[in-house]
């Protein structure tokens, strides 16, 4: 395993780790809210990753204005993407949370196992 290369691509590794942690939470935790949190962790990992790709070492803000002349600009597109992504993620979370509310209303619990009528009654 080439550690220097791994270090170089640290953003990949970290976001993958975060993504998987989120996935684990979603899969394993019985509580619906915890599952949602896991989902958010996943989202965050992806956003983090996207932002990190746009990073250019020593780059400047990509503002095209009078007098600013730089060949070293940070790529603006990822940032724009993330904004949209966050909006989408928020709406997903919102829907999920509202569902959670309703579920709690109807079932009186947020435990997935209990909701599905499996495991302990």
């Amino acid at each position: 395993m080439n550690f220097s290369r791994m270090f170089h691509n640290l953003n990949y590794v970290v976001s993958a780790l975060l993504f998987l942690m989120g996935l684990y939470t979603v899969v394993v935790k019985p509580n619906l809210i915890k599952k949602l949190i896991g989902l958010n962790i996943m989202e965050t990992s992806v956003f983090l990753f996207i932002v990190s790709i746009g990073m250019v070492e020593g780059g400047e803000a990509p503002i095209v204005a009078e007098g600013v002349k730089s060949s070293q600009m940070v790529n603006p597109i990822p940032q724009a993407l993330i904004l949209t992504g966050i909006v989408v993620a928020v709406s997903t979370t919102a829907v999920a949370l509202s569902l959670c509310l309703k579920i709690h209303e109807r079932y009186g619990t947020l435990n997935a196992a209990e909701i599905l009528g499996r495991g302990e009654p």
Partner: peptide, 11 residues
């Protein structure tokens, strides 16, 4: 199967 695995782990 989300809940299935959860149950499995809880056990």
């Amino acid at each position: 199967d989300i809940s299935g695995f959860a149950t499995y782990m809880r056990a």
